[in-house]
Amino acid sequence: MENIHSHLGHSANGLLQEIRQQTAVNIQACYQCGKCSAGCPLAGEMDFPPSLLMRMIQVNKPETDEKVLGAYSMWVCLTCNTCSSRCPMEIDIPRVMDHLREKSFTLGKTNKKASPIIDFHKAFLKSIEVNGRLHELGLIVYYKMLTFRLMQDVMLAPGMLLRGKLHLFPERIRQRKQLAAIFKRTYKRRKEQEV
């Protein structure tokens, strides 16, 4: 009986409504033509191609919403915008992906397979928070600490150093305190929203 997909028990405040309210994207407009999935360069990597993800949100049940938030799809999405540029209903799928990622991340529901990708983003933001600008070497070192992928890309580093593409020391902005305050305010707001 578990496999029977029931359309009873719709949520009144599921992802469908939340996305409509917070991003102004109406996923009900999707008529499942699949053009997004057909054009998506990453569809093959995803557990649910974009059109299927839209359908799952349309179903609007707590169980499917859980599946959506735990999906791998949005973490491999590269925001290339191919889907939305061709969507006949002009649905801003990349915006939805952004929403799903942030929601899944703040609720701690992220797909396990996505950890290296998320760790990379975390390392990236850390580098900016500290320096104001990206410091590639710092980013890579921090990323390796998070993922234990110690040997990855080691062969690339000497070549990069040789060609002046990797700097030992970060370039920093002057108003670092002001920038750190910007980071802090966004974190604080997110905490408030969770409460």
């Binding site: 933001l125 900016i128 990206l134 902005i173 108003q175 966004t186 707001r189 997110r190």
Partner: peptide, 25 residues
Amino acid sequence: SDWNCCGATAAHNLNRELSLALPAR
């Protein structure tokens, strides 16, 4: 003057407000 990183993919993937604030600065 004293420009900062735009936040790139990482910011809009994890933190929408930051992804708006960094370019806004």
